[in-house]
Design a protein around this nucleic acid. Structure first.
Lengths: 129, 129
DNA sequence: CTGTATCCGGTGGGATACTG
DNA sequence: CAGTATCCCACCGGATACAG
């Protein structure tokens, strides 16, 4: 989502960071991940996604879908009926990404308490000063 | 009555998406990942990081370090010497996160060409319209 | 039903001068 | 050496109105 994060690596040891930032930038938008998860299970229609994803605006749903389609994570299919029927289906690449992200989710759940404790300690130390 | 058509919003999916967004938000800043990678190898001093990370401003290095310290990814140690000597060291949790992120890097490298091709095709189709 | 167009506020991040 | 303070701007995302 945020293209401002792209930059050219000047050093070899920054190459990995650049690659990581590249992929993370693609899914770091506010709605990218939840759209990926919804479509990973089965193809979804526009309004179906709009109803399933609580709080998303029509504009952001469109932008997020376009971006995911552009990067090859979603395939958009228009059925020429009246009214129009558009389906968004996750690609194999997207499902593979989802598997890696699940690893991150597992990590996050395992360390959630530790992070919360670290934050509380940091904030308390800051307040004490 | 048959309730086959009533669709309950997928709470589990949104929950996972929220957890994922939480952890990704912590490392999606422009400089978070490269700072994590640099400090993961060995403890680093402030100016050392400033020199190692090409293009980072003093302000953003400070903000990034504070944020990573607050979440428990870095430990900041001040040696009471003159001039002051401050070292930032990655925690075990941060190194574990780094391992998961490496999986993402591998995925990104494997699919880099596919993504590039998808983008080119999408942009060309958009230009043709 | 499936989008576009427009306006607007909040925020992430750059440049740089100052400081203990 | 290791930061902080200030100014500034680009861009993300929300609300809403319009359209094929």
């Amino acid at each position: 989502m945020s293209q401002r994060n792209t930059r050219v690596p000047e050093r070899a040891d920054e190459q990995e960071a650049c690659t990581l930032l590249e992929v993370i930038s693609r899914v770091s938008g506010k709605w990218s991940i939840v759209v990926l998860l919804e479509t990973a299970r089965r193809p979804m229609r526009f309004t179906e996604l709009e109803r399933a994803i609580h709080g998303i605006s029509r504009r952001m749903l469109t932008l997020t879908l376009r971006q995911l389609e552009r990067d090859g994570f979603l395939v958009r299919t228009v059925h020429p009926t009246v009214p129009p029927r558009v389906e968004y289906a996750a690609t194999d690449m997207a499902r593979e990404l989802h598997a890696h992200l699940s690893g991150l989710t597992e990590w996050a759940e395992r360390h959630r308490d530790t992070v919360a404790a670290a934050r509380a300690a940091f904030d308390e130390a800051a307040a004490a000063r």
